[in-house]
Design a binder for these strands. Structure first.
Length: 447
RNA sequence: UCUCCGGUAGCUCAAUUGGCAGAGCAUUCGGCUGUUAACCGAAAUGUUGUUGGUUCGAGUCCAACCCGGAGAGCCA
């Protein structure tokens, strides 16, 4: 019985006879030699089946292997510069083979496929090199998120997914039947996070969130994962520092741990190496001036090379504006102090200038858009009550939320980071649908 | 919801002015000792998204609808 190893461990077993269990990605052959590209989840390498070494009977079995057939392969691990794979450079000289199953005709071929076909076959598409690399980047990003927060005194406190009508942007909520009462899938855990900080100081929630927006772009999913830290005794300025330390750690950790995966994805990592504090900070006022100056010059932005439209002070930025602003910097940029009227009711107004609020968006470079939205929250109960009235929200639904400001209110801040947007940005992939195993894009619920 | 683009073999696409429905890949068979989307030879592959219309004749023109993609708005 030979030892069973994972492909990623092959480099530690050069000169040994071992067994690898996995799937045939592709078989190519030339007469008495066949090359098996093998995947086992940990990595990708090739096994070389050479008829004189393997014997006629086993070689005949090798030639029966179809794409995605499952096998147990035993052979000698050799270092060879010609050997492709991830990490590559090592291959198996095949000595024995046990076929677990000969796979039926596999629908996904090495040639190009359309988006619809691939999404219909998402359960199989996940087996491809590229999806494997993205899944590993995602897992690494999530681990970095949790490590950083856990190591910096944040307590994980999960927030509910089934929520009552909160009155804010109800058109974007998925409604469900909660035993005869309408309920909604959560689009944020933030309000609950605010309750949690008064009990636990610094908290985060991490889970799926739901937006029923009719958004059909590369930057939108109906269901996506978001991490939302919330911090007591924290004002906007401190929040900005936390955000950039957090994002830098995620990016640098992923660069370190997923070098092979990013290489497979063709990511230009030099653009990520810059992602270290401090990040540039501009105000909404400055951003508006930048945009309008660019609009006057007729600057165009990807993806369609449309010119940057002018903006009037007080309006929110559209995607082309954000793309342009982010393109002016070599790392993510904080844009702070948005007009109060375009932001959520709970954001703390700037005391000297209440028409703007102590909000911040972090825009990722390379057109990936807003990856973080955050703010200092309103801490005064009277101001909050007035804001709820001004936004014509049902006051009784917010009784508990106002309570938080009545029993030991403190300045506090928090933000939400979209996991798929972060993964897409770090991976350099163009569409969020590849940043999660089973994406929920508008108009699709399967597989 | 709006704007633009598309739907032809299992997959990716082609088809001239409206005139016999075609390739490559995948599949099957044969050949070859270093392949990286192998190569060479052979075989097999169709309700052209749906419905209706114009026409001697429609993949091609017209209308409606269905599905998909890109973008806008909104957001992470």
């Amino acid at each position: 019985m030979t030892p069973i190893i994972r492909i990623i461990e092959a480099k530690d077993h050069v000169g040994e006879v071992v067994t690898v269990r996995g799937w045939i990605k592709r078989r190519t052959g030339k007469g008495k030699i066949n090359f098996l590209r093998v995947r086992d989840g940990s990595g990708i390498f090739q096994a070389v089946a050479f008829r004189p070494n393997l014997g006629d009977e086993k070689f005949t079995q090798v030639k029966r292997l179809t794409t995605e057939s499952s096998v147990m392969l035993t052979g000698l691990i050799k270092a060879d510069d010609r050997a492709p794979g991830v990490p590559g450079g090592y291959e198996m000289d095949l000595q024995d083979i046990e076929i677990v199953q000969i796979a039926d005709d596999y629908p996904i071929t090495p040639k190009e496929h359309g988006v619809e076909f691939l999404l219909d076959n998402r359960h199989l598409w996940l087996r491809s090199d590229r999806q494997w690399a993205i899944a590993r980047v995602r897992a690494t990003v999530i681990r970095a998120i949790r490590d950083w927060l856990d190591d910096h005194g944040y307590l994980l406190v999960d927030t509910p997914i089934l929520t009552p009508a909160a009155g804010e942007g109800t058109t974007t909520l998925f409604e469900i039947d909660y035993h005869g009462v309408p309920a909604f899938l959560a689009q944020t855990g933030q309000l609950y996070n605010e309750a949690d900080i008064f009990a636990f100081g610094k908290v985060y929630c991490f889970g799926p969130t739901f937006r029923a927006e009719k958004s059909k772009t590369r930057r939108h999913l109906q269901e996506f994962w978001m991490v939302e830290p919330e911090i007591a005794f924290c004002k906007l300025e401190e929040l900005l520092e936390i955000e950039e330390q957090f994002v830098s750690y995620i990016v640098q950790t992923t660069l370190e741990r997923c070098a092979d995966e990013l290489k497979l994805l063709g990511r230009d990592v030099t653009l990520l190496e810059n992602v270290k504090p401090p990040f540039p900070r501009i105000t909404y006022d400055e951003a508006v001036a930048m945009v309008n100056e660019a609009a006057a010059r007729g600057v165009t932005v990807p993806p369609n090379d449309d010119s940057v439209p002018a903006i009037e002070w007080g309006d929110d930025f559209g995607s082309p504006h954000e793309t342009f602003i982010a393109s002016q910097f070599d790392r993510p940029v904080h844009v702070t102090h948005y007009p109060t009227r375009v932001k959520a009711f709970y954001m703390e107004p700037e005391p000297e200038r209440p028409e703007v609020c102590r909000s911040t968006d972090m825009l990722a470079p390379e057109g990936y858009g807003e990856i973080i939205g955050g703010s200092e929250r309103m801490s005064d109960p009277e101001l909050l009550l007035a804001a709820i009235e001004k936004h014509k929200l049902p006051q009784d639904a917010y009784d508990w939320y106002i309570d938080l400001r009545r029993y030991g209110s403190v300045p506090h801040s928090g933000f939400g980071l979209g996991v798929e947007r972060a993964v897409a940005w770090i991976s350099g992939i163009s569409h969020l649908r590849e940043a999660i195993a089973f994406p929920r894009v508008l108009g699709r619920l399967t597989p």
